[in-house]
């Protein structure tokens, strides 16, 4: 019994300690933004790795998600004779929820894991220590450009995802099922508002990008410096970031609607 309680206490302490380490890491990351020299070239490279290389995945996923939405919703809406509502339902669900969340999860798998693995490998081969030896802060040199790139790339990829999904649903709804294109688009434009929907979508994707950037770089920096440690850290990034994104999604939605 006492042992169990002790175990619980140890778990809580480790958890709080981990949280504190993440916070300190985040603070360090934030405070190194204005510090010269500017690593703009590294930022561009990280944006290429995290953003550009995810474009194909995001566009394809968005398009297929849109096609499935169009097919599923159209058949359901037909039962109520409300096919005209397709644009509104597709637009609202995509802009508010599916766009930011699915983009967040996809980018986590595509780019977040890669960043953790890269930083983890650098750590296990003592490259980070090498940088410190040359008086270069690895936080500023390695982690910051990647975290920033994820934060910037997420809203852009979110926009791409939503536009491609809208196109996918248009393709199925209009060409396959025979809904009028104008009805679909005007329903979409009437239902989606900038303040309520697009604003929420942007905020969500920014927060998700920030979370993923923080988690991915932190896990890389704090991984055990061996092959198994890198593998664990990469898995842990995907799991932690996915859960955090889903939780943050609920919190933002709840706060937004009050």
């Amino acid at each position: 019994m006492i042992g169990l309680i002790r175990e619980l206490g140890a778990q809580v302490t480790t958890g709080v300690e981990g949280l504190g380490r993440v916070a300190r890491f985040g603070g360090h990351l934030l405070s190194s933004i204005p510090r010269p020299p500017s690593r703009f070239g590294f930022f561009v490279r990280a944006l290429f790795d995290a953003g550009v290389l995810s474009v194909a995945l995001i566009c394809l996923s968005g398009f297929t998600v849109g096609m499935v939405l169009g097919l599923q919703l159209y058949t359901t809406l037909t039962r109520f004779g409300a096919e005209e509502g397709l644009g509104a339902v597709v637009g609202l669900s995509l802009v508010r929820e599916l766009g930011p969340v699915l983009t967040g999860l996809l980018v986590t798998g595509r780019a977040g894991s890669a960043i953790t693995a890269e930083i983890g490998a650098m750590k296990s081969t003592e490259q980070l220590d090498g940088l410190r030896m040359m008086a270069i802060d690895p936080m500023h040199f390695v982690a910051l450009p990647r975290a920033l790139a994820l934060t910037i790339a997420m809203p852009l990829l979110n926009g791409l995802f939503i536009v491609f999904a809208i196109a996918g649903a248009y393709g199925v709804g209009v060409w396959r099922q025979g809904l009028d294109g104008g009805v679909y688009i005007s329903g979409l434009e009437d239902a989606v508002l900038f303040g309520d929907d697009v604003g929420q979508s942007l905020l969500k994707s920014l927060v998700f990008g920030l979370l993923l950037g923080l988690i991915a770089t932190f896990k890389g920096h704090s991984c055990a410096p061996d092959a198994a440690g890198v593998a664990r850290a990469t898995t842990s990034t995907v799991v932690t970031a996915s859960v955090c994104i889903l939780l943050a999604d609920y919190v933002i939605t709840a706060l937004w609607s009050t």
Binding site: L47, G51, V52, A153, L156, G159, L160, V163
Partner: peptide, 9 residues
């Protein structure tokens, strides 16, 4: 990439 992303937004 940035331009296209901004265009979609």
């Amino acid at each position: 990439f940035v331009l296209v992303g901004l265009a979609t937004l």
